[in-house]
Design a protein around this nucleic acid. Structure first.
Length: 566
RNA sequence: UGUCCUGUGGUGUAAUUGGCAACACGUCUGACUCUGGAUCAGAAGAGUCCAGGUUCGACCCCUGGCAGGACAACCA
């Protein structure tokens, strides 16, 4: 039996309940010491950060314990599924950094086997063809507190069931006219055991099996058996399937499966504050035009988060930190942001960009003169070297970096005060020029030539500002994103109202920025830290002469926080 | 008023299976800094849903409550 490697790497790390189960299973030699999981999405929508947790969990467990993880599409309902979603899901899982090798499976691959297994149950008298309508079945099922009624077709002879079921497959009956049901217990306190439907007649073209089938298996019937057919050892799903587990086991029992039985385990799904996670609500946001598609950078979808500039490593780190347990949870968005900052701080090259420019003129600097200054690409990674940043008489700085009448502890520019221009000189503010309505149109300064960066000047100032040279800077569009909702839990906050009422109208602000020339030829997907403001990435909408940056997340800003708290 | 699951700092997750609760995020100090970033040092914050019981000793075991969640698609 193999010993889990990671257990040796991180002996002090506490194990989550699934890891404890797995280690116990490994120790006891269950399934021959084999670990095999699967990520089983239904291709009926885009994956979101909650799915990312499941992906990281399933693939992560397999990696950690030298096992395997399959990608299996749970495609048993052709009316809702499509190839578009299949492809999007594949891309997302791959982007997250996981490899299912040649194990890309589909529940639809098992339709024939599932059909034969159903025949087996019919022959055992454990399944029957029911001719009640959908409404009748629903009524007859009772309620959690009231037992259901037996179907009038429940005691049909085996031969008749066999004949009917075969003809169902052949298309002898209209859609919805008959179903195959497991014969279990209409009085069970567990609703899922009240003769659940296994097959329905549905003439729909399937994205893989085309029109080959007109009967399709239901989730409970297909899922567990698919797990078995793939030799899955640990079938991990979310809490809402907990009540399905007795049925999952019933099918295995009655199919008389003794060896290599998969087991189902449930964990609590991920919830994030200030967003919604249900597919239905996400779809509503897309279709109602509240966002610009599934990959809108404000969406909690994997494609949205990717476009926003998050890295796969940051998502994996996040999944790791949120933990795995069985109790409902709401994770703070701040944790997700912490994870990207951590990754990007180490890996994103720095660049200077001014988001809200105001002109700054250095009166004693020669006209028409340009200096090429050396700037470090990433202080966290000296090996990345330097870049050149042009400096000249007329610059732009951030409007918020100047205050005529500054409060205490304002380390930036104000009349008579000195600051350093990053990588350049220390300047002193002489005066601000305003227009008729009092807006500042230009700030005039003088510089001290002896304070050039790298010259070893000992002069100290409290503040350092980022800037760009007016003549050399490149104009770019910046899309500043904020949380999509104003309420920590939009679902509940609305009460009986609409969750969309708590949508943040300021979740997207589009602006123009001036960027230093070294970032002028950035390509889609490139990520940067704009010094002092945040992490940004190039959006796919970006064109060679027309850059578009998305703000992934701002830098932590203790000054802004301090001001806000006042 | 049926069945099942869950209750540990603000948030999330631990506690070597009974030995007076740890880690992360967040928060707050301070140091350092040519990013008010990063880094470093430190602090505050729970006595584990409640009530009993077992035990020398309970977050952990037992009993009874309470609270929250899941389940009544021919969805997954």
């Amino acid at each position: 039996m193999k010993q889990p490697q990671s257990a040796n790497e991180k002996p002090t790390t506490a194990l989550n309940f699934l890891e404890q189960i797995i280690q116990k299973d490994l120790k006891e030699g269950r399934a021959g010491g084999r670990i095999h999981t699967r990520f089983p999405p239904e291709p009926n929508g885009y994956l979101h950060i909650g799915h990312a947790k499941s992906i990281c969990l399933n693939f992560g467990l397999a990696n950690k314990y030298n096992g395997k993880c399959n990608l299996r599409f749970d495609d048993t309902n052709p009316t809702k599924e499509s190839l578009e979603y299949v492809n999007a899901i594949r891309e997302d899982v791959r982007w997250l950094g996981f490899d299912w090798e040649d194990r890309e499976y589909y529940a639809s691959d098992y339709f024939e086997k599932l059909y034969e297994m159903a025949l087996f149950l019919i022959r055992k008298g454990k399944a029957f063809v029911c001719e009640m309508t959908g409404e009748e079945i629903a009524e007859g099922r009772g309620t959690p507190a009231i037992p259901g009624k037996l179907s009038p077709w429940r005691e049909r002879p085996v031969e008749e069931n066999l004949d009917l079921f075969e003809r169902m497959r052949k298309g002898a009956f209209p859609d919805g006219s008959k179903v195959l049901r497991a014969k279990i217990d209409m009085a069970s306190p567990n609703m899922h055991m009240r003769d659940p439907v296994m097959y329905r007649i549905m003439r729909a073209t399937h994205h893989r099996t085309d029109d080959k089938w007109c009967i399709y298996p239901m989730y409970d019937w297909a899922h567990g058996q698919s797990d078995y057919l793939e030799n899955i050892t640990h079938s991990i799903c979310t809490l809402e399937f907990e009540v399905h587990r007795p049925l999952y086991d019933w099918f295995l029992d009655n199919l008389e499966i003794k060896d290599n039985r998969p087991r189902q385990y449930e964990f609590a799904r991920l919830n994030l504050n200030y967003t919604v996670m249900s597919k239905r609500k996400l779809l509503e946001l897309v279709e109602g035009g509240y966002v610009n598609g599934w990959d809108d950078p404000r969406m909690p979808t994997i494609s949205g988060i990717r476009r926003r500039g998050y890295t796969p490593a940051s998502i994996r780190m996040f999944s790791d930190k949120v933990g795995v347990a069985k109790r409902e949870n709401v994770i703070d968005m701040a944790l997700l942001e912490h994870c990207v900052r951590e990754d990007l701080n180490k890996n994103a090259p720095r660049v200077m960009a001014v988001l809200d420019p105001v002109k700054l003129v250095i009166d004693n600097y020669p006209d028409d003169h340009t200096e090429e200054l050396q700037a470090i690409c990433n202080p966290e990674k000296p090996e990345d070297g330097h870049r050149i940043v042009p400096f000249s008489k007329t610059l732009y700085i951030e409007r918020s970096d100047f205050l005529e009448d500054p409060p205490k502890k304002f380390f930036r520019l104000s009349p008579g005060k000195e600051v350093r221009l990053k990588y350049a000189y220390i300047i002193r503010c002489e005066k601000a020029v305003k227009d008729a309505s009092g807006n500042i149109t230009a700030i005039h300064c003088t510089y001290d030539p002896d304070t050039k960066s790298g010259m070893g000047s000992t002069k100290k100032v409290k503040g350092t500002l980022h800037w760009v040279s007016a003549e050399h800077s490149v104009e770019a569009e910046v899309r500043l994103y904020d949380r999509l909702f104003n309420e920590p839990s939009p679902d509940n906050a609305a009460g009986d109202g609409d969750f969309k009422e708590s949508l943040n109208p300021l979740s997207l602000k589009i602006g123009k920025a001036l960027v230093e020339p070294s970032a002028g030829d950035a390509k889609a997907g490139d990520r940067f830290q704009f010094e002092r403001t945040g992490y940004f990435c190039i959006d796919p909408d970006s064109q060679p002469g027309k850059l578009v940056f998305n703000r992934t997340v701002s830098l932590r800003d203790s000054w802004a926080k301090q001001q806000k708290d006042k």
